[in-house]
Design a protein around this nucleic acid. Structure first.
Lengths: 122, 122
DNA sequence: AAATTAAATAGGAATGATTACTATTTACAA
DNA sequence: TTGTAAATAGTAATCATTCCTATTTAATTT
């Protein structure tokens, strides 16, 4: 993999963000450093960074969002403002039951807990 | 809500399908009964049916799929063929811990278990 | 240090899923 | 049966994302 300033920049933007941004947001941030960076470059590199394990992607409704936290973790999602909040909540499912009942070989669980974040509870 | 033959048809198609189809598939099925039905009608009615609790939607990567099973349930997803399989697996999370640790009011959990279905295990 | 080369880019066109628009049709009420 | 507002068909527009291509650039070879 050849060095690319744009790719490093995009990695740093995602790694230092706390908001699980989408490609458009990363693009706007990246423009502050490379004014003529193209959106295609952002998409291409986000995908490369994901495939090489440098960042993670989260499929949120009809948008892909990115996460610089590559630890295994899950998210709380606020139904009011769309905020995604990292958690250390573990999922425990009965592997044997799934294999026996459904003839299915489970590998990974992805979940969201939907609800209201502190800005919207009262 | 005024009666619409198209809406009833779309509801019946989703209700009787086992594959968690997307809008395009529902559209093709509906055309067998109403040859000039429009795709917009399918999208609009799928949304109405969802909002009135007649069917459910599943956000699967970047496509919306529909489910005629409105019971609270979750899915196994085969990473090889994309099949979604209904399960009765329950999610149990610690409501109090989430409220205390994250100042978040949880309401609902959505999860997928990713793995391989019987066609692809050997 | 210059020449070479293949990977990466910028910019823009294309795609695919979905939504919006509008003239016409239709359910249903007066 | 006539009036109406809701629903439709058909089509254009939108939005996120991917694809295409001429140009630029990192890294290798002379």
């Amino acid at each position: 993999m050849r060095y690319s300033y744009q790719r490093e920049l995009i990695k740093d933007i995602v790694r230092s963000s706390k908001t699980h941004p989408n490609a458009e947001w990363v693009f706007c941030e990246a423009k502050k450093k490379v004014e003529n960076i193209s959106l295609g470059t952002v998409y291409r590199n986000l995908k490369i960074l994901e495939n090489t394990g440098k960042i993670k992607s989260i499929h949120d409704d009809n948008q892909v969002r990115y996460d610089g936290n590559i630890e295994d973790h899950h998210h709380l999602k606020c139904v009011k403002c769309g905020a995604l909040i990292d958690t250390d909540i573990q999922s425990n499912f009965d592997r044997k039951k799934i294999m026996d009942d459904y003839d299915f070989e489970p590998n990974e669980v992805k979940f969201f807990i939907l609800g209201k974040c502190k800005k919207h509870t009262k």
